[in-house]
Simulated assay, not measured.
Amino acid sequence: MKLREETFEVASETERLIIRPLKKSDYENWLNEFKNRYPSKHRHDQGKVDMSVCTREWFYNLVEKHQDLALTDTAHVFGVFRKRDGTHLGMVDFSTIERDDFQWGRIGYSIHNQYWRQGYAKEAVTEALNIAFNYLKFHRIEAHINLDNPASINLAESVGMDYECTRKNFIFEFGEWTDNLIYYKNAF
């Protein structure tokens, strides 16, 4: 793992993956894997998305925005890449909820659906939690999960996150206020 504090760039590797911020040179790889997604399999899977607005300039701006968010500790966004060929598999991100006496953040994760059921999500999230605790210095990480998303629940549990509670009417999505299951993990 390496940390360049002047740009707050964190990168990490597992047996099969590289987890790092997106670079401008990732554009074609990133775009190709979004275009290769399968149709949506359920409500929590975007499936194929319209990528027509995602020009090279748009992507360069996205990379710069991610860097700005990291430098201000608002959010830390990481691409997940397969080590053997560099294929972009998905994303993992952390949003800072509160620092000070809490050191509290939220995790989000997404693997392109053409790469599901190969263990990439578990491997990526496990390593991302290592980044969150050891390099970003969070004490607590939460996953906010829809009640009807068993794949995300199983993933959270498989990486050692514990169910804490159900927050009622917690987030506005799908045109309504929805409940979320809260899973958490603390640094040890």
Rank of each mutant, 00 (worst) to 15 (best):
A156L: 02
Y183F: 11
E164R: 08
G108L: 06
W116I: 05
S110T: 11
E123Y: 10
K168A: 04
Y183S: 10
F133R: 03
Q114Y: 11
R167I: 15
F138R: 10
Q118S: 10
Q114F: 06
E173C: 10
L155T: 06
Y109C: 12
A124F: 06
M161S: 01
Y184H: 03
E173T: 14
I182M: 08
N180H: 14
L136H: 09
F138C: 13
I182C: 07
I145Q: 00
R140K: 14
Q118W: 02
E164K: 12
V159N: 02
A128S: 09
N113H: 02
I171P: 01
N130E: 09
N134L: 09
K137Q: 09
S152H: 04
Y109M: 11
V125C: 00
N180G: 05
Q118A: 11
G108H: 07
N180L: 09
I131W: 01
A156K: 05
Y184K: 04
L181A: 14
T126R: 04
N180T: 13
E176G: 15
Y163F: 11
W116N: 09
S158R: 01
G108V: 09
S110E: 07
A124I: 11
N149V: 12
F174P: 02
I171N: 01
E176L: 09
D162M: 13
I141L: 12
A132T: 15
Q114V: 07
H144K: 01
V159G: 00
A143F: 00
P150D: 07
G175Q: 15
I111Y: 00
C165P: 00
C165K: 06
L181C: 13
M161N: 00
E123K: 10
R167Y: 05
L136N: 11
H144W: 03
I145C: 00
V159E: 00
P150V: 13
Y109S: 14
K185L: 05
G175R: 15
R167G: 07
L129R: 12
E127C: 08
D162Y: 05
H139G: 12
N130I: 14
F174A: 08
T178M: 01
K137T: 12
C165G: 07
E157H: 04
V125M: 03
N180S: 13
S152I: 10
R167C: 07
Q118I: 11
G119V: 12
I171Y: 07
F170N: 15
I131V: 15
D148W: 00
W177D: 13
T178N: 02
L155Y: 04
I153D: 02
V159A: 03
N146I: 07
N186Q: 06
I131A: 11
V159W: 00
E127M: 01
A132E: 14
L129K: 06
H139I: 15
Q114E: 06
F172R: 13
V159D: 04
Y115N: 13
K137C: 05
Y163M: 04
Y184W: 01
E157W: 00
S110G: 10
V125L: 02
N149L: 01
D148S: 11
W116M: 06
K122Q: 12
N154C: 03
I131G: 05
